[in-house]
Computed example of a mutant assay.
Amino acid sequence: MNLPNQITIARILLIPVFMVLMLAPLSLGNININGIPLPSTHAAGALLFVIAAATDWLDGYFARKYNLVSNFGKFLDPLADKLLVTAALLSLIEMGLLPAWMGIVILSREFAVTGMRLVAASEGNVIAASGLAKWKTVFQMAALAVLLLHNVPFAGWNLPVGMLLMWAAVVLTILSGIDYFVKNKHIFRQSM
């Protein structure tokens, strides 16, 4: 198994640890961020999420730089991303830090685009990530990281930075979903 695929599998293996840190009834004290107490397990979970999210860039970098792109990696990498995002969204909803409808919009788009990619793959077509989808991912990951830290104010800003980022992510999620289906409607026509 090549290095990029090992990194992707490591990302998947970090997800249960992340979920335990965020949702298990562990009490290991609090840390203070700008005077606001944050459970230390949630701080550790947020850090682990950022590390796991960064491995998405890392595995892609190694795959492209060393020409290690594989069909297994093409399948596993987006699956790992969706599992990580799903785990973070469900954790935030469970903790009352994110409205469920936002999670449903994001997950619905992910399932719909994944379904479209499966239909395309069954006919020998590969649908690459669009530029809009890449921006969607950047905003999703940034929003999730901030919200996992309980949306604490940063640098003295008294703004809900996490929710502002999440609103941008939701808008980009909808727009990129529409973009995928408009640009690839021929795939459904061919498969019917």
Rank of each mutant, 00 (worst) to 15 (best):
L164K: 00
D77K: 12
V119K: 15
V170W: 14
I187D: 01
R117K: 10
W167G: 09
F18P: 04
L21P: 01
G115W: 09
N2I: 06
L175R: 12
L148I: 04
N30T: 11
I33W: 06
L118D: 12
M141P: 06
L165E: 01
Y61Q: 07
A155T: 01
I93L: 12
S130P: 15
T86I: 09
S130H: 15
L172Q: 03
A168N: 00
W157S: 12
A168I: 11
L58Q: 05
S40P: 00
G103E: 12
D59R: 08
I15T: 11
H42Q: 07
L58T: 09
N5T: 13
S40L: 08
G29F: 06
F72Y: 15
L26Q: 03
Q190P: 00
T114V: 07
K134I: 07
I178F: 14
S130E: 14
L144A: 05
N151Q: 03
V69Y: 03
I106D: 12
F154D: 02
V119M: 15
M141F: 13
S122F: 08
M102I: 13
V170N: 14
N71S: 11
S27K: 08
M95E: 03
K183F: 01
T8F: 13
G162I: 10
K74W: 03
L148C: 03
A121H: 06
G177R: 06
K74V: 01
A88E: 12
M102N: 09
T114S: 14
W167R: 02
A145T: 14
S40R: 07
A43T: 01
A88K: 11
L21H: 10
M1P: 02
E94H: 13
V113L: 08
N184Y: 09
S40M: 05
G45L: 13
V138D: 12
M116F: 00
L28S: 02
Q6N: 11
V17G: 05
K136H: 11
S176G: 03
A143E: 01
F181M: 02
L26D: 03
M116S: 00
A10T: 12
A52R: 14
K183G: 01
I9R: 09
G177D: 05
W57E: 02
G103T: 11
H42P: 00
